[in-house]
Computed example of a mutant assay.
Amino acid sequence: MAIDVLSQSAVEIAEKINSRVVLFLEAPPKEIESRILSNTELTVVVIGPVFDVRNRRLIRLSIPLTLDRESVLNLVSAFLLEQGLIKEGESFVYVSSSEIGIRPVKRNLFAVNGFFSQSRSVVQKLLEIAIELSIEGREGHPIGTIFVVGDVKNVMKHSHSMLPNPFKGHKINVLDRNSKEIIKEFAQLDGAFIVSSRGRILAAGVYLEVDPKSLDLRLPPGLGSRHIAAAGITKLTKATAISLSESGTIRIFKNGMMLLEYNPRMKY
């Protein structure tokens, strides 16, 4: 079985380079997990439908499967740094049913401290919706929008409504099965969605009051105003922001830094 052979090779590589983590990009058989945990001191990280971080040696992360490989590795790197499971400059080994690789970690590429917090499932769901909007648009037209998740009180202090709030008095939650089409419909409005850490949509069509000149934003050149606003609000608050440009590019920001950049329309 290919994954069995590759997993053994991944363990040997990890031990040779003094790595502390082996990442499975797809869930291996349980006996492989058990064997690694019993015979080594490595931490095993598995990408799949389950999120479970209670066991520090066997960690399960749910990351959208529609993301490209680079984005998945970026998110895992951010998690490992955030949880203190790996240090800047160290590497982890990743393995799938067809490949093995070594991933060095550089802190300045990632925004950590809270991305995989209580709002994790909310951010994941909004990321999935952003990917669908990037690919499909709305009624044949490209869509650009921002989702701001968490730290709602402070976000509201740095924003104002551009139109009557369509979600006022309604308890619509992004985790509800029937909310996706509603979110996609209102994504056509200018401005941002404000979403609580538990997923309730509090407002849409919100203007984010961000002055990038007064903030120390560590961003790559060439970003448009939508992405800069998304980055800025995460610098001013503890929120996480997902921005979608009309070109289809999705970016996630935390602490004023870009954690992920991905365009589902492009082939990587």
Rank of each mutant, 00 (worst) to 15 (best):
A2E: 14
A2R: 13
I3E: 01
I3T: 00
D4R: 14
V11W: 05
A14D: 12
A14F: 06
N18Y: 12
V21S: 04
V21R: 10
V22H: 10
L23I: 14
L25F: 10
A27F: 04
A27P: 14
A27E: 15
E31T: 12
S34F: 07
L37I: 14
V44R: 05
V45Q: 04
I47C: 12
G48K: 09
V50P: 03
V53G: 00
N55H: 11
R56S: 11
I59T: 04
S62V: 06
L65F: 09
T66F: 09
D68R: 10
D68G: 15
S77H: 11
L80S: 08
L80Y: 10
L80D: 08
I86Q: 11
E88R: 11
I100N: 11
R103G: 02
R103V: 13
R107A: 15
L109C: 09
A111E: 10
A111G: 14
F115S: 07
F115T: 08
F115M: 14
S121K: 12
V122P: 05
L127F: 11
A130L: 06
A130Y: 05
E132L: 12
L133A: 09
S134R: 00
I135M: 15
P142N: 01
G144T: 01
N154S: 10
N154I: 00
S159D: 01
H160Q: 09
S161M: 10
N165W: 02
P166A: 03
G169A: 06
I172Q: 01
N173M: 07
N178H: 12
S179K: 05
R198N: 13
L202S: 00
A203Q: 13
A204G: 10
G205F: 09
E209H: 06
D216S: 14
L217Y: 07
G222P: 02
R226W: 06
I233Q: 07
K235Q: 04
L236P: 04
A239K: 06
S243L: 05
T249S: 13
I250L: 07
I250H: 03
R251Q: 12
F253A: 01
G256C: 03
G256V: 02
M258R: 05
N263I: 07
N263Y: 13
P264Y: 01
